[in-house]
Amino acid sequence: MNIFRLAGDMTHLASVLVLLLKIHTIKSCAGISLKTQELYALVFASRYLDIFTHYVSFYNTVMKLIFLGSAFSIVWYIRRHKLVRRSYDKDHDTFRHYFIVLPCLILALLIHEKFTFRVVMWTFSLYLEAVAILPQLVLLQRTRNIDNLTGQYVFLLGAYRALYILNWVYRYFTEPHYVHWITWISGLIQTLLYADFFYYYFQSWKNNVKLELPA
């Protein structure tokens, strides 16, 4: 494992911890899109179908369990916890799941490396992860007050994807036959979706003002 991959995974882990901190400690999910969180739960459920059948490493198995467990517990918190659900901004989180899930499923059925259930589900999870942040970005744009933890959560998620791209570039030059077009293109699209957010995030950081996305 190279440093970019490790840094990417740690950034991903940090994003989850920041979100759990906000939800578990502050008992608030203000500004957090339940739609995006449900899509992530679906992403990990469909990607890690092989968690108990294809062993890669102890590290991988533990990380998979963390991402699965945290994704589903975050959804549980927002839907069921009596304090947390009160802070959920339902009226602004209006993105429809099937606008995202259905095209990803169709695309996975059409474009994949191998037509088996496992591989199609794995490909579906890649396409879905690429666009799962959209409901969250839409919600941020509609939220006048983006709190620090929410801003950091989205920033860490974007940073994780950018680091994975560096990891692929590194692996391409250091490993023989390392070519994964489907992963790379969906990962690149996923990272580009954050470009706008990154711009305003750095602007607010540089000028020391509160983060706000223009409508």
């Binding site: 991959r5 995974d9 991903h12 092989d50 294809h54 890669v56 490493s57 991988n60 990380m63 998979k64 991402f67 490396e113 191998k114 496992r118 591989v119 794995w122 490909t123 994975y164 990891n167 036959h177 070519v179 994964h180 992963t183």
Partner: peptide
């Protein structure tokens, strides 16, 4: 190419 099943990334 390695099989996608053997993919070692998260």
């Amino acid at each position: 190419n390695p099989e996608p099943e053997a993919h070692d990334e998260l």
